[in-house]
């Protein structure tokens, strides 16, 4: 199978982007953004993940099936987090006697 072979330049640019984002997230952590610091930190992490996944892991060249598998994995992680937090965040929210 003759896969797409990306140029070293592409990889180098992606790598530079990753280093830049690492420096950025480290710096931003020392700035008071209130509740947004989590959002920014995770936003940058997601960007880095996308760079690694799309370029280094070649997802942008891969089949629909691979993309589906990855999205499925993330969706299931979302299910685990969302439904558990639906309990954790609502403890005692409905004034039920005995709870």
């Amino acid at each position: 199978m003759s896969a797409h072979i990306d140029s070293v330049k592409t990889y180098a640019l992606v790598f530079a982007g990753l280093i830049f984002l690492t420096v950025a997230t480290t710096y931003v952590a020392t700035v008071d953004l209130g509740p947004f610091s989590v959002v920014v930190a995770l936003g940058i992490a997601v960007c880095k993940m996308l760079l690694v996944a799309l370029f280094f892991m070649h997802i942008r060249h891969s089949t629909k099936l691979t993309k589906l598998v990855v999205l499925g994995g993330l969706l299931w992680l979302g299910i685990l987090l969302t439904l558990t937090m639906s309990d954790i965040l609502t403890r005692g929210a409905l004034g039920v006697p005995g709870r």
Binding site: T25, A45, K48, V52
Partner: peptide
């Protein structure tokens, strides 16, 4: 690597400004 990309901000970078 991606796992670490998430571990780094989640473990090291919580409200550093405080």
């Amino acid at each position: 690597d991606i796992i670490w990309i998430f571990l780094f901000p989640l473990l090291y970078l919580i409200d550093r400004h405080m």
